[in-house]
Every structure is written in C-alpha cells, then in structure tokens.
Computed example of a mutant assay.
Amino acid sequence: MFRTRALLATLAVAAVLAGCSTGGSSGGGQAVDGTASNDGRCQASGADFAIGKQGSADLLEQARKASGSQTARILKPRDVVTLEYRSERLNLNVDEQGVVTRVNCG
C-alpha cells in the first residue's frame, strides 16, 4: 500500500515538472519563418499587407505568421464578438464583399 502511494506521488510530481519544462530551441530567438520571436503576441503592423485583399484562409494564415500571432480570425460586418482582448490573436476585419478593411489584435 505504501509503495503504491509513493509511486503515485512520484508520478504526479514528474507530471507537474514535465508541464513546467520548456521545449528549448537552438533558434537563437528567431521564429522558424524568420520573423522575430515575440512570444506569440500579435503585432498587427506585420499584417498590414492584407488590407485591400480578398479575405481567405490562405491570406489569414499568411497574415497570422507575419504578425507573429498564435491565432487569427476573419470578422465579417455583423459577426458577434465578445469584448475579451487576447494579445495572441489577429483579427482581419472584412467588408460586405469580403475585402480586408482593417487589421488589429485582440
């Protein structure tokens, strides 16, 4: 009984410590695609090239990578959104025709 509890406690501690570890990389602070690492935070100015283009999944992914964001979405004129601000998310706002009119983080 004591051995079982000791083993379970050891496994629990190992699991907690594994969750705290970082992957570590030899990239020298640079992201794989060559953009500066910014901890996944959005920098909307990197995606300004999308303004005036037709919103699409490909454009969204290019803009997400260029901004350094972890996530991205396209917002249409009447989409319902919450007021939460997420520093790692890029928003591409499109007009009725699906053309990007604004790029922002949140």
Rank of each mutant, 00 (worst) to 15 (best):
G40V: 06
D33T: 06
A66Q: 05
A18G: 02
K65T: 11
S56Q: 03
A47R: 03
S69K: 03
R64P: 03
V80T: 14
G29T: 11
T22W: 09
Q43V: 14
P77S: 10
L17W: 07
V80M: 09
G68R: 01
R78C: 00
R78M: 11
L75T: 10
P77Y: 04
R64D: 03
R41W: 07
G19I: 02
C20K: 08
Q62M: 05
Q30W: 15
G19W: 04
K76A: 15
L60N: 01
R64H: 02
Q43N: 12
I74C: 03
A50R: 01
T35H: 09
S67P: 02
G52L: 07
A57F: 09
E84Y: 01
E61Q: 09
I51W: 03
A44C: 07
A47M: 05
A44K: 07
E61H: 03
K65A: 09
L17N: 01
G28Y: 09
G24T: 13
Q43E: 13
A44Q: 08
S21E: 09
A31I: 06
P77F: 06
S87K: 12
Y85T: 11
R41M: 10
G40F: 03
V32F: 05
R41P: 00
I74P: 01
L17Q: 04
A72K: 01
E88Q: 12
A63L: 05
E61R: 08
T35P: 00
T35G: 10
S87H: 11
A50S: 08
P77W: 04
N38G: 15
G27R: 15
D58E: 15
Q70N: 12
S25Y: 02
Q54F: 08
R89N: 06
L17Y: 04
C20E: 07
A63W: 02
A31W: 07
K76Y: 09
A44W: 04
E84M: 06
G23R: 09
G19V: 02
R73M: 10
G23E: 08
F49H: 06
D33Q: 06
D33G: 04
T82R: 08
G46Q: 04
L59M: 06
G24N: 11
T82E: 05
F49W: 02
S21R: 11
G28I: 09
R89V: 10
A63C: 05
Q70H: 09
R86D: 12
G46M: 07
D58S: 13
G34E: 07
A31K: 14
Q70R: 13
G52R: 08
R64A: 01
Q54S: 12
G46N: 06
E84A: 14
E88Y: 11
I74V: 13
R64S: 04
E61G: 01
S37M: 12
G40Y: 04
E61F: 01
I51L: 02
G68H: 00
S87L: 10
